[in-house]
Computed example of a mutant assay.
Amino acid sequence: MGSLYYGDSAEPISIDDRALAHLKIVVATKLRRNESFTLSWRHPDPDAEGRSTIWLHPSIPLRFVFDSTDAPEISRQWVEDLANSANSTGGVTLIDEHVEAATTV
């Protein structure tokens, strides 16, 4: 489980390493373009039910911390799905990865 540290908060936002790696690509791209936006996610299972949203701005410090030393393989489709949500009026929504089921012949 990775962590996203936002602003001066000492309490991290817990996000799965794989999801965090994909999210980092989209967030870094938006912030590099000097774009502000919201980031929303559902609370992980151990936490209370619900969801949260934060406002991301290039001037607010962010730190991505991964538990794994190995970077995951990046799914281009998942990055595109997250980027599409980033360009909507609702901002980035941390959505689950869509995995195509393998078909057997």
Score class of each variant (00 low, 15 high):
Ser75Cys: 10
Ala10Lys: 15
Tyr5Cys: 01
Phe64Glu: 06
Pro72Ala: 08
Arg63Leu: 08
Pro72Thr: 08
Gly7Ala: 05
Leu23Trp: 04
Pro46Thr: 07
Ser3Met: 07
Arg76Phe: 02
Glu80Ser: 14
Pro58Val: 11
Pro44Arg: 06
Asp70Ala: 14
Phe37Gly: 02
Ser59Asp: 12
Ala21Ser: 13
His43Trp: 01
Gly50Pro: 03
Gly7Thr: 05
Gly50Met: 03
Glu73Asn: 03
Ser40Gln: 10
Ser14Asn: 06
Glu11Gly: 12
Ser9Arg: 13
His43Pro: 00
Val79Asp: 14
Glu11Arg: 12
Ser59Lys: 13
Ser14Ile: 07
Arg18His: 10
Leu82His: 12
Tyr6Ala: 01
His22Ser: 08
Ser36Ala: 11
Asp16Thr: 03
Ile13Gln: 01
Arg51His: 06
Gln77Asp: 13
Ser59Ala: 13
Asp70Tyr: 10
Arg32Ser: 15
Leu56Ile: 02
Leu31Ala: 09
Trp78Glu: 12
Pro58Trp: 14
Thr29His: 15
Thr29Leu: 14
Trp41Gln: 04
Ile74Glu: 04
Thr69Met: 11
Val26Phe: 10
Arg51Asn: 04
Asn34Glu: 13
Tyr5Met: 04
Arg42Leu: 13
Pro61Lys: 09
Pro58Ser: 09
Trp55Gly: 00
Ala19Pro: 00
Trp55His: 04
Thr29Phe: 12
Asp47Gln: 11
His22Tyr: 13
Ala28Phe: 04
Thr29Met: 13
Asn34Ser: 14
Ala21Glu: 08
Ser40Leu: 00
Ile74Thr: 11
Ser75Pro: 03
Thr53Ile: 03
Val79Pro: 11
Thr38Glu: 00
Lys30Asn: 07
Ala10Thr: 14
Lys30Ser: 11
Arg63Asp: 03
Leu4Tyr: 00
Gly50Cys: 03
Ala71Leu: 08
His22Ala: 10
Glu35Asn: 08
Leu4Ser: 01
Trp55Ser: 04
Ile13Trp: 01
Arg42His: 10
Arg63Val: 04
Arg32Cys: 11
His57Glu: 09
Val27Gly: 09
Gly50Asp: 03
Gln77Gly: 07
Ser59Phe: 11
Glu35Ser: 08
Arg33Trp: 06
Ile74Asn: 05
Gln77Leu: 09
Asp17Cys: 10
Thr29Lys: 15
Ala71Asp: 10
Arg18Gly: 02
Pro72Glu: 03
Ser75Asp: 14
Val27Thr: 09
Ile15Val: 07
Ser14Met: 02
Ile13Lys: 02
Asp81Trp: 04
Tyr6Leu: 06
Trp55Asn: 03
Ser40Trp: 00
Pro44Thr: 05
Ala71Asn: 07
Pro58Arg: 14
Gly7Phe: 10
Asp17Glu: 06
Leu56Asn: 01
Ala19His: 11
Tyr6Gly: 00
Leu4Asn: 00
Ile15Gly: 02
Asp8Met: 13
